[in-house]
Design a protein around this nucleic acid. Structure first.
Length: 581
RNA sequence: GGGGCUGUAGCUCAGUUCGGUUAGAGUGCCGGUCUGUCACACCGGAGGCCGCGGGUUCGAGUCCCGUCAGCCCCGCCA
């Protein structure tokens, strides 16, 4: 139907006759002359219609056009008159003088505009999701999906060159006993029994390792029936990788090589090797297991200096076994009390009772904490006039998240220059277990993590201090992926499940197939799962995953374009053995 | 499960503080004039369940209660 793409029309085509197709982007009528901006995926081009070169039928057809009508145009490509060129438009030196124009389909007046005038706000996200096909016509979103395609294509090529096989694992799987809620699928042939949609292909990829398919890749769709966030969808895509006979360093190198290859697709940097930091150091220095290292401002232990001051709050916190930790912000005293209040609010939202602060000036220190300062307190903390100190006192479980939130809020408020623009980081040696609210052991990551060899003897005596051979890939404070070396010994895997409180008969029923496989000669193996949606969103500079997913769900887990989920007739449910409540 | 913000014309938003004539603007849409526009310009017109339900009041877009939807966050997300 077409002989050229709209966005590819350039001076080399001048004088040639072409046929173009696309959507009416905008229209301008000047009486005898009129202009139609024609849009296809490749761009926008001005079509000019005038009595000197267009037939009366063409002029009449052009006069009837509305926005988003689908048309086909034939005409001569021309360089525009010198004075009529538009330097703000990619094809602004060119135009097509239409000799024939055919309406392929009419569009009703669009519910949301595809063309947005400068400085016009986007329609509300509610409407953008409801009218998704119109929203997706905007070049901005098409570019996000194109970037996603290029990234996933490069991922496949990268791993293919290294001998990985892409292998599809089941979508109808076995419900998993722990972790996120499963989406369940009723079995018609086995009434009262259910499949689950996979939360990840974790166990299947381990089984593939046992099967000897020692390098596995899958661009895998995963499902979790949990509440959403801007960076969490119920249905998402993982770049799932597993390999046999590997150590963490092998995984790091593969991923670093991959990121170095992907980053240029989005014009960002990925200098390898990436920095590595233990989980323990990350929490100590940044209060978070995914610190944003584009900026400095590490957390410091200020107990030796501040514990001596005359503040009862601080003295009591130290006496109760806590520490005083804080952030030294150079130049931070220019923040207003209101801004500091905003930072404190962030710390409170993260669970701190409050945040203490001191502004350092030539004359001394001010603020709720500054008033306790002695003459040399500032100097002993290594602080200068113009600096701001933010401090929290108490147990690390309170101060770490509080100071992480405060650090992030302070960086937003101060907007200091970045130390690096692209901060890549491996966070390593995650603890194997964490303490659940009821005091029981819970898996920190998942139950399929190999304990660190130096700590394995502590499994029974001090399980909470056992490090796992687990690692996260962090980019600019966002967790892009998570992986580990897995236990390949059935006995050890059984022991870990037991420590997690899974009863022996339950282990047999739920993990029997895994343990049976591990006992059949499983190789040492490990891998990682990278969040494809998050990766693309980060690379595209998007805050929401919705912008890199063609048909995303809303925050309440609805599909508002197609209208799902929907009720199902009771006879259909009955056929599945389900009785609605 | 909890907290916050938002909901007024097709779209983006004023108006809600302190209840009071006929709810406005820009843009889009419809009609007209216009031969080099590109946020075209100009003239005219249509377009409103003020998310929905209830309450208070002589009177509610505005106050109260509930509810629905969208967004952000906490919990949750092995």
């Amino acid at each position: 139907m077409r002989s050229a793409e709209v966005g590819r029309v350039d001076p080399s085509l001048a004088g040639r006759e072409v046929r173009l197709v696309g959507w009416v982007h905008r229209r301008r009528k000047l009486g005898g002359l009129s202009f139609v901006d024609l849009r296809d995926r490749s761009g926008v081009l001005q079509i000019s219609i005038g009595p000197e070169w267009s037939s009366p039928e063409t002029i009449e057809a052009a006069g009837s056009l509305g926005p988003e009508d689908v048309i086909r145009v034939r005409g001569l490509v021309q360089e525009r008159p010198e004075e009529a060129r538009n330097p703000d438009m990619a094809t602004g030196d060119m135009e097509l003088r239409a000799t024939a124009l055919e309406v392929l389909n009419r569009a009703r007046t669009p519910e949301i505009p595809v063309y947005l005038p400068p400085e016009e706000e986007l329609p509300s996200e509610k409407l953008r999701l409801r009218h998704r096909v119109l929203d997706l016509r905007r070049g901005e979103l098409q570019e996000c999906l194109a970037l996603r395609h290029r990234i996933l294509l490069a991922v496949r090529r990268y791993f293919d060159r290294r001998g990985f096989l892409e292998i599809e694992t089941p979508i109808l799987t076995k419900p998993t006993p722990e972790g996120a809620r499963d989406f369940l699928v009723p079995s018609r042939l086995h009434r009262g029994e259910f499949f689950a949609l996979p939360q990840s292909p974790q166990l299947y990829k381990q089984l593939l390792m046992v099967a000897g398919l020692d390098r596995y890749l899958q661009i895998a769709r995963c499902f979790r029936d949990e509440d959403l966030r801007a960076d969490r969808q119920p249905e998402f895509t993982q770049i799932d990788v597993e390999a046999s006979f590997v150590e963490p360093g092998d995984i790091y190198r593969w991923c670093e090589g991959l990121m170095a290859e992907l980053a240029p697709l989005a014009g960002i940097g990925a200098e390898t090797p990436f920095r590595r930091m233990s989980y323990r150091d990350a929490i100590e220095s940044y209060g978070s297991d995914r610190p944003d290292l584009r900026h400095g401002y590490p957390i410091a232990d200020l107990t030796p200096v501040l514990g001596e001051l005359g503040s009862t709050i601080l003295r009591r916190a130290v006496a109760e076994g806590g520490r005083i930790r804080g952030l030294r912000l150079s130049g931070g005293s220019r923040l207003t009390r209101r801004q500091i209040g905003g930072i404190e609010d962030a710390a409170k939202a993260a669970g701190a009772p409050g945040l203490l602060w001191a502004k350092i000036s030539e004359g001394g220190a001010t603020g709720p904490l500054g008033r306790f300062f002695g003459d040399d307190t500032g100097a002993r903390l290594g602080m200068e006039a113009g600096d701001l100190l933010l401090a929290a006192a108490g147990g690390d479980r309170v101060t770490s998240p509080a100071l992480a939130a405060a650090r992030s809020a302070a960086i937003s408020a101060l907007a200091p220059p970045m130390v690096v623009e692209d901060a890549w980081l491996w966070v390593t040696d995650f603890p194997l277990f964490e303490e659940a609210d009821d005091g029981a052991l819970a898996a920190n990551h998942h139950p399929f993590v190999q304990p660190h060899p130096d700590d394995i003897h502590l499994l029974d005596s001090d399980p909470l201090s056992v490090r796992g051979m687990a690692y996260d890939l962090v980019y600019n404070g966002t967790e892009l992926g998570s992986g580990s070396i897995r236990p390949h010994d059935a006995e050890l895997q059984t022991r870990i499940l037991g420590l997690l409180g899974v009863e022996p008969d339950e282990i047999a029923v739920k993990f029997g197939f895994l343990l049976e496989a591990l006992g059949s000669g499983a190789p040492p193996h490990g891998g990682i799962a990278l969040g494809a949606d998050r990766l693309v969103a980060q690379f595209a500079g998007r805050a929401s995953l919705r912008d890199v997913i063609a048909f995303p769900k809303t925050t309440t887990a609805r599909a508002s374009f197609e209208g799902a989920p929907t009720p199902v007739a009771s006879d259909e449910l009955a056929a599945l053995g389900i009785v609605p409540k």
